[in-house]
Write a protein that binds this DNA or RNA. Structure first.
Lengths: 259, 259
DNA sequence: GAGTGGTCTAGACCACTCC
DNA sequence: GAGTGGTCTAGACCACTCA
């Protein structure tokens, strides 16, 4: 591994001229290489990746440097370290964190694990609207898959979601297949379409339920609902899913931590 | 610095008997010592703390061990590292992150920085209700300060908040003093009452505006509003503020990142 | 130039898992 | 016992800030 341009050869931005400080620490370069390997599918979700010592010799750096790279990737939830076993590519499957991105929590914590059912209302191909084109970074006129579904917790409809996915990478996804699959959507995307959701951004608003929305969630028209607009990203910060959810917060709340 | 009990002297939990594995890595012990010093006010917000080398010799460990402790504290936003200058106790003052805990973002990013005004409606002592007692971990019957205020962004009322603080540590806090203070509430709490907010948990719901709430935020009665219930913690995970906010999300949204 | 944090290395030993 | 990640050390050098 060769160090990139050092600051001495890359003038600082204060010295005028369009600086091109292509400098980055070794461990950042290693991190980028590992990320690339994940993105290219060299190691798939759930896989054991090579040991730190092996990666160190492969990249020609010390183990400490590989360690720092992996530390950051683990902090970003791309990898999971397990002492004594090795480092694994993280997955939406076997994790304790099956519903890592669902922040909705029941008001009264149930003694049992919460019983969740999904009902898929629709799954069809449509031409992407302007909003979806911009959010997903696809071309105007591209096709997308639109999925509508309802989540019920303990029998009560709590979430209505409208989901948009680029059609190409999700070719073959049908309502029937959605129904059949057991487990979280993101687990399915990962194992059946090779797309792993890594992080997401949400915009949260309060909205009054329209007549249709009210009917779907079995609440009175005009009832305040949480509108959660999510943009989910795969490796390399590539946006791959836009989702608009309506949450009924009569018996649940959206839990957040501020640091 | 002496290593604590090693696992060999502390039977694992699988071996039966109430295990007392009081083992922790050195850097965790250092971290606890530093946290304690912060809590005790040895170093105040904004202060420069001793250099890594100095701390290492004080604690009798290597610089690398101190480094790892500080790394974690920096990740938790208790400290801020500044290359070439030193490590500082983080503060709600000079940070870029003045409103670290306010996640409300204007729908259309304004060219100018956003003009924010605060109006304090009330600030009085009351006997804590059951909810507040439980949240703040105080004794039943203890007094608390209740503050009500409105935030306006670009002239438009956007946030109405009802804030509860334990009365004792905030003795002397009055409406007049609140009015006079320039800058974020948490900055004031920090410099005038020695209480620094470190992290917070929020429960978010959608609610329909009551007549009074609607009047305060100048929206129609029944309009959907974001209800944001925040419990804020100081050093050592001690809860010190309970706050119930109502956000008007007509022209703003609550921004969140999921990792 | 002195002092600080940031990176990188090499090596030792510990803790955990699995065979 | 072999192999993995986790901790700890000591030392070198780099990058940045400030006087």
């Amino acid at each position: 591994m060769q160090r990139m341009a050092t600051p001495s050869s890359a003038p600082s931005s204060t010295s005028g001229i369009a600086a091109a400080p292509v400098f980055s620490p070794l461990y950042q370069q290693i991190k980028a290489l590992i990320t690339r390997a994940l993105q290219d599918g060299e190691w798939r979700p759930g896989d054991l990746i090579p040991s730190e010592a092996e990666l160190a010799s492969r990249f020609g750096v010390s183990q400490g440097t590989v360690r720092k790279a992996i530390d950051e990737l683990a902090a970003e939830n791309l990898l999971i370290r397990r002492q004594g076993r090795g480092t694994f590519v993280s997955t939406h499957h076997e994790d304790q964190v099956k519903f890592r991105f669902l922040r909705l929590v029941p008001e009264t914590e149930p003694a049992q694990g919460l019983r969740m059912e999904r009902e898929f209302l629709e799954c069809h191909r449509v031409r992407a609207s302007g909003d979806v084109v911009r959010a997903l970074g696809i071309r105007a006129g591209d096709m997308v898959l639109e999925i509508r579904r309802i989540l019920r917790i303990a029998g009560e409809p709590v979430v209505y979601e409208d989901i948009y996915l680029p059609a190409a990478p999700f070719r073959g996804l049908t309502a029937e297949r959605l129904e059949r699959y057991r487990g979280p959507l993101y687990a399915m995307f990962e194992s059946e379409f090779g797309t792993r959701m890594v992080r997401a951004e949400e915009k949260i608003r309060a909205v009054n339920a329209s007549a249709q929305e009210a009917a779907l969630l079995r609440v009175p028209e005009g009832r305040a609902l949480l509108s959660v607009e999510r943009l989910a990203f795969s490796y390399g910060d590539q946006p791959v899913e836009l989702r608009r959810g309506l949450y009924s917060t009569a018996h649940h709340y959206y839990r957040n931590e501020l640091n």
